[in-house]
Design a protein around this nucleic acid. Structure first.
Lengths: 208, 208
DNA sequence: GCAACTAGGCAGTAGCACTGTCTAATATAG
DNA sequence: CTATATTAGACAGTGCTACTGCCTAGTTGC
């Protein structure tokens, strides 16, 4: 199919498709002439995935590209693949200025030790937690790794559920895509579930 | 203190402080003359909170204003207060076009019934979950409310932890701020914990 | 009395995510 | 074999957000 049909089938404007092609989010079609290219079902699918990452999860175009690059990497080793997926973070400024400051991390390492978690030194999630704890403390809320422990225990159960659902597809590409979808696309839904549960629990306590 | 000291103490440029004043995120200082105003500790604190909501959680200035408005509302009824807090969502486009479509919700109501949760019809979290499920299905992942159930059970435990930590402050303002901090500011950290747990769990399974 | 500071207003900027326009090259219908 | 439509690729322009700078008139501290 040509670009206009790809646009119609995916609901993305041709100008936008060209933009994604330029940015490398969408692989180029098979060129049949200087001004003609052929796109396939994979392109329709990829476009839908792009819109989901950007629209549903709220990733920037650049972050979405990082995610898609990981999928296209085609790593067959699940563990290695997940390492790449988990290294992606949306809150872009992660480390803008002064990344080398604060060697302590407010006990994040202690949290990991307590949970018995083995995690790469380079995982950006460490930074996110450290920064959150710092911010809470600077706002007068006494919060440290101890307070996070029960949440970590729940996160562990969540992760178990997550990984269970990655069993199945043997095709590396399919597996990578499923990992991305269930890890990244599910994030807003998990936060939404928490808010629903908060409201429900608040209602229960209020009635009591 | 005057604006320059407020700027120095908070680390926010005076031009930006004026911008927040214009946008209503920061209450005006006590005017002592036509070109002079007095700011207090509350302003320093509020500024830090603003930067945390925008910088750490990634809220837009508009969404941050909604949050701050809820805090300033000064609701003394905890349940009512939390209802306001939980009604805030960052993924701005929530309902851009065609909000009235899709009456089904892919069984979100069924999920709520199964969990025994009583939740306002108006809670934006419903929409978020519905949209996520729709998106997953359109991408070929068979996912419905049944698959979310175990996550909902974990979310319920999370919410219990959350509400336990809101016991304490009697002052409505303080309580509201704590609710906001522990609900909204903690969100990136909870997702980060999940990713850490995922990597750790993946490592364990890989070794096995 | 005079430099330094300030409130308020508004214009300008930078970055992001598109969106529109243009050119040269096909494609297709009649 | 024309006339009309479509396309790839390049690049300029747009709309929005979140500031940032500048100006004016007024105020403060020495």
């Amino acid at each position: 199919m040509r670009i206009s049909e790809l646009s119609r089938r995916s609901g993305v404007a041709t100008a936008t498709i060209k933009y994604y092609l330029r940015e490398g989010l969408l692989p180029p079609g098979r060129a049949t002439a200087a001004t003609q290219a052929e796109y396939g079902e994979a392109h329709v699918r990829r476009l839908r995935l792009i819109r989901a990452l950007i629209g549903v999860r709220g990733l920037s175009v650049g972050a979405a590209k990082d995610v898609l690059d990981v999928i296209s990497e085609g790593k067959s080793d699940t563990h290695e693949l997940l390492g790449l997926v988990f290294g992606i973070w949306p809150s872009g400024d992660g480390g803008g200025k002064g990344t080398e400051e604060e060697g302590d991390g407010l006990g994040v390492d202690h949290l990991l030790a307590e949970m018995g978690w083995t995690v790469s030194e380079h995982n950006p999630a460490r930074e996110v937690i450290t920064r959150t704890l710092h911010t809470l403390n600077s706002l007068g809320v006494e919060y440290g790794w101890r307070e996070l422990l029960p949440y970590a225990a729940l996160a562990e159960q969540t992760a178990t559920l997550d990984l269970d659902q990655l069993e199945g597809p043997d095709d590396p590409l399919e597996k990578a895509e499923r990992a991305v979808l269930l890890t990244i696309l599910l994030e807003p839904a998990l936060l939404a579930l928490r808010r629903l549960a908060q409201e429900a629990e608040s209602t229960v306590r209020h009635r009591g």
